[in-house]
Design a protein around this nucleic acid. Structure first.
Lengths: 192, 192
DNA sequence: GTCATGGGCTACCCGATGGTAACGAGGTCG
DNA sequence: CGACCTCGTTACCATCGGGTAGCCCATGAC
């Protein structure tokens, strides 16, 4: 027997559950039935709250992406210099990863890159991050090259996180962030 | 009317065509009919040469992965020191990317990470690369941390490549490799 | 010419899955 | 009480896509 929930509660519960299901199996690997079952409910209920599988997924990644970008923006806002900005930015990123592996997997697990529409969303996120990072790079470098570097620095965080998440164990985000920021900052300084 | 090919020729042609089709649409996004059509042939022909969609895909990624790892191993084999090894390793990587975007997209486009079996294959490839990179990192660092750094350095190449490939334009792999290797090497030295 | 070999095709099966129509059941308010 | 509103269910449709059975026809050897 299913517990009856109010519409907003049910909607939020579906989002919570869907995050985990899609994180585990990916967009194509998880069916709407899977999501419904995990929510302890049947399929039509999902369609009372979301127009389609795509819409449900999009709402998820928008939420998660904004949470990530917001955390980084907030953390770096009042940093005194580039070095502190680098450190705090990575710190916010790795804390976000460590706090909820599902969110990381949802965004960077791969499903996002395999679909034109979702790819655009993910690109918007990484481009936003790259735009924030680019000013840290020596100003006399060609802007196009700056962007390549910026994406490289984002890739550092993504790959290190993937490695850590795949290992399954917990990790100390601040320690990782400190080490990675040291590597990135040294790399950046070498360009000047 | 279809051109008749001998079995080995047809098999190879299917592999060539499948690389492009899967690269464009991903494993789930491309159907066997799509592959067949692109090869100018019908579905049963594919199944005369490959047991299943999975097997076809696996053969592709094995080929491509081995090509990448082989190129890097060959390039770094006789490098005199760590710095040269770093530079030549990235050079081989970016040359591989620039030479055939499809191969890069196939491996790192995302499809690979969404499936337990394929994920293992991709992990084998990146772990091999990480094992090759780890010795370049200061020996007095904790081995687990070394691996995190190694994966971070791989991520640099992957993310920079993705950015370049998504932009669509050609790029000079040696120039990119030189710059990225500079960044990575400066980062590595800072750890000592 | 004819006949065997083998490469290719048409037509089909069937399971999975996104999505929907129509129907309960239980609380609430006049 | 009875009308109604809302949350949920059962049962279904339609399509897609992996995979297969069985047939056809081009080619080359003799």
């Amino acid at each position: 027997m299913t517990v009856r929930l109010s519409a907003p509660e049910r909607r939020q519960q579906i989002l919570d559950v869907a995050l985990e299901v899609f994180g585990r199996s990916g967009y194509h690997g998880a069916s709407m039935n899977d999501v419904a079952e995990a929510a302890g409910v049947t399929k039509p209920v999902l369609y009372q709250h979301f127009d389609s599988k795509r819409h449900l997924y999009e709402e998820l990644i928008d939420d998660v992406g904004n949470r990530l970008l917001g955390a980084i923006a907030k953390a770096t806002a009042d940093a005194p210099d580039g070095k502190a900005q680098t450190e705090r930015g990575y710190q916010a990123y790795f804390r976000w990863v460590a706090q909820d592996h599902d969110e990381f997997v949802l965004l960077f697990g791969g499903s996002m890159r395999r679909d034109d529409e979702f790819r655009d969303t993910l690109r918007r996120i990484t481009d936003d991050a790259a735009t924030a990072i680019a000013p840290l790079i020596a100003v006399d470098v060609d802007p196009e090259v700056q962007r390549v570097f910026a994406h490289a620095l984002i890739g550092i965080a993504e790959s290190a996180s993937r490695h850590l998440v795949e290992r399954g164990e917990q990790f100390d985000p601040d320690e990782v962030a400190h080490r990675i920021a040291g590597l990135a900052w040294a790399g950046l300084r070498s360009l000047g």
